[in-house]
Amino acid sequence: MDHEPLPSESHAEVRIVAATPEVARRVAEVLRHCFASNEQRSYPAGRGGGTRLHLTLDTAHAAEPARSWLATSESTGHDQTHADEV
């Protein structure tokens, strides 16, 4: 499996897979209320239809409620990938 380079320390790459582009956009909009982000990119999600949306979040510029959640969260130390992730 090819691995993409990791984003910078204060950024996170997010992939949203949804049945319709509208659902993917609604989820992305919620994330943008919590974090600064770049322009989203969308792609077909495969044979079954649907949409895959990619965006990069800037966690250094978090808004509430993400700011308070980030301040109190702790990493579990688990680096797990779902079976269907690429």
Rank of each mutant, 00 (worst) to 15 (best):
M1H: 11
D2P: 10
H3L: 15
H3D: 10
H3W: 11
H3E: 14
E4G: 08
E4K: 12
P5M: 11
P5E: 14
L6R: 14
P7Q: 08
S8C: 07
S8T: 14
S8G: 12
E9A: 15
S10N: 15
V14Q: 03
R15G: 00
R15P: 01
V17I: 06
V17Y: 03
A18G: 00
A18I: 01
A18S: 03
A19H: 06
A19E: 14
T20N: 03
T20W: 04
P21T: 05
P21L: 13
E22Q: 15
E22P: 01
V23F: 06
A24H: 01
A24C: 06
A24N: 00
A24V: 02
R25T: 07
A28I: 04
A28W: 02
A28T: 03
A28V: 05
E29W: 09
V30T: 11
V30H: 08
L31P: 02
R32S: 02
R32K: 12
H33K: 13
C34Y: 00
F35C: 05
A36F: 05
A36K: 10
A36P: 00
A36D: 13
S37D: 06
E39N: 11
E39L: 12
Q40R: 12
Q40Y: 07
Q40K: 06
R41N: 04
S42Q: 10
S42G: 04
S42V: 06
A45T: 00
A45W: 03
G46A: 05
G48H: 09
G48D: 14
G49R: 02
G49A: 04
G49F: 02
G49T: 03
G50I: 03
R52I: 04
L53S: 00
L53W: 00
L53G: 02
L53C: 01
L55T: 00
T56P: 01
T56I: 12
T56L: 15
L57Y: 03
L57A: 04
D58I: 04
D58A: 04
T59F: 03
T59I: 10
T59Q: 10
A60F: 04
A60C: 07
A60L: 07
H61V: 04
A62G: 06
A62V: 07
A62P: 05
A62Q: 01
P65M: 11
P65Y: 09
P65G: 10
P65R: 09
A66R: 05
A66V: 04
A66E: 05
R67S: 12
R67P: 02
R67I: 05
R67C: 07
S68R: 11
S68C: 06
S68M: 09
W69D: 05
W69F: 12
L70N: 09
L70R: 11
A71R: 09
T72Y: 00
T72Q: 13
S73D: 09
S73A: 15
S73H: 10
E74K: 14
E74T: 14
E74A: 13
E74V: 13
E74N: 08
S75C: 08
S75K: 08
G77F: 08
G77D: 07
H78L: 15
H78K: 12
D79Y: 10
Q80C: 07
Q80Y: 08
T81K: 11
T81F: 11
H82R: 15
A83K: 07
D84G: 02
E85Q: 13
